[in-house]
Amino acid sequence: MNESVQITNLRVVRNGKIILPDLTMSVERGIVAGLLGPSGSGKTTIFRSIVGVQEAESGTITVLDRPSGAKELRTKIGYFTQSASIYSDLTCLENLHYFARLLGDTEISVEEILDLVDLRRNRKQIASSLSGGERARLALATALLGKPELLILDEPTVGLDPVLRRDLWDLFHRLSDQGKTLLISSHVMDEADRCDVLYLLRDGKVLANGTPQGLKEQTGKADMEDVFISLVEKL
């Protein structure tokens, strides 16, 4: 199939609150797809559903031709969470080695990844003593381990230095050139232009999707922030 992710009529209710009323969306393979929307718009819930840790009321999710949560997918999805789920009482290197050993074969070696996320100097540092940005980079590094075909990155560039942010976006595109699919969420609209395809999200619904250029032409706005506003106001 040409889609890496296909979500059909997904409905998720958490604590009596409807997070995703009826979501249908698909993501092509080998692209950098951006999920844009304000906080509370359902980005993280969509990601949790795709990796298979979110219980849904109804709907189907197919990921890399398998139902989400399938055993075969566990080596194929790299997941970066906002809460930086790493062991804070281990060093950077110990964290990376542990996740690498669980995954078995890894395409990019631990050493290369340390350079990619610029943590070489901190390799022997205990994670709890890292700064917020460094912790996020460590968590991102663990998501790149293994042989992921789909990378789910939940706001990976928040609070990062602009130079590193640019380097990471370059890396994301290099990975998609190798055929991997990247699904990246952000609430920073200026990152939207770096995505191949965008999904604008509000209240658990996809307002619009398309290329950044296409969305701008469709709304006649030059700035992604204005595109978003004009789409919301048209409702």
Partner: peptide, 13 residues
């Protein structure tokens, strides 16, 4: 609570 368990359970362990 830190999310590492959830993280592990989507890995091949």
């Amino acid at each position: 609570t830190s999310g590492t368990l959830e993280r592990l359970l989507i890995l091949p362990i």
